[in-house]
Design a binder for these strands. Structure first.
Lengths: 160, 160
DNA sequence: GCAAATCTATACAGTTTCGTCAAGATTGAT
DNA sequence: ATCAATCTTGACGAAACTGTATAGATTTGC
């Protein structure tokens, strides 16, 4: 279970837009230079973020990218889902049935429960962190010990 | 953030060894047929599990695979780490520095805190589930709502 | 209108992962 | 000894992912 490059660098590009675009807009050359990646690569990642509704683009001589929402309203988990997908999502079982038509464990699948619980744990973390938290980790406590106490979710996935 | 095929099918093979090898040993043809994957693929995954110390192999006419430990002593998280790596591990920052020699965020990196917190959340789930839990989900509560209450960890990673 | 700066889009090669193949090594039964 | 069943290993092609290249479209300012 590793992070994809899209997730890591895509999120970094989003942070750069938030930082550098606070009073204006951030351009692809600026962002790519700040993160040490090529301009076409930054452009590709920003396109994904734009189509996901996280940034807005302006063309032309004074163009660039700005956030589509205030950083407090952008959940890191939402951006990551666009950039790299989710661990457990609809159709999961159909993609792991081997060569058989139906998943071998379909009737009573402990795997499914496992992955859903993992996904829930990740969601509890990533669903509580906003882009603002990444920008100002010391104010929000991200750098210290934010997740020592997790709220009890209303309902956890079961096997049904 | 998706599961790799090694993680999904590798863990399934481990479950098959536990199930079918309870009173004897499980062979590659048996395992591959049960999971609907090819025998060479099952063999490759079982090799990874063997080198990770989770199963033992016996050659010869009555050979096959058995668990190297009782299922209660095999943590699902340990097997998955061998099969597919971890989200956050040593050297993480060096692999995401773009073209620059040092990571741009090295001094005070909110990304690092983020990924470590995600990894911790996953570890709390996967570090509390054993192979026995996957085999008997109803006895152990995996199928219902095992993770509604998470213990508070002794210490969470900080940025230092 | 024109040029410069910007974003947009598709196509391309390099690398990694996925899954298979084929040949070899070991063991037990006859 | 021989055979059959088993695991072991390295190599291989196909698919997906990474990152780049190239050409095009849009806007601003002169």
């Amino acid at each position: 279970m590793k992070l994809t490059s899209h997730e890591e660098y895509g999120l970094r590009c989003l942070v750069q837009v938030a930082r550098r675009g606070e009073h204006g807009s951030a351009t692809i050359p600026e962002i790519s230079q700040c993160e040490g990646i090529s301009t076409p690569y930054a452009a590709k990642l920003l396109r994904v973020l734009r189509r996901g509704g996280f940034v807005k683009a302006a063309r032309g001589k004074v163009g660039g990218y700005t956030l589509a929402l205030p950083p407090e309203q952008i959940l890191v988990g939402d951006a990551l889902a666009i950039l790299g997908g989710r661990i457990y999502e609809d159709g999961f079982c159909g993609r792991h049935a081997g060569k058989k038509h139906d998943c071998v464990h379909s009737a009573d699948c402990s795997m499914r429960s496992l992955w859903r619980n993992v996904q829930d744990a990740v969601d509890r973390v990533l669903g509580s962190i906003t882009l603002h938290d990444l920008l100002y980790p010391h104010e929000t406590g991200l750098a210290e010990h934010r997740f020592t106490v997790l709220r009890t979710p209303a309902r956890l996935h079961t096997n049904s």
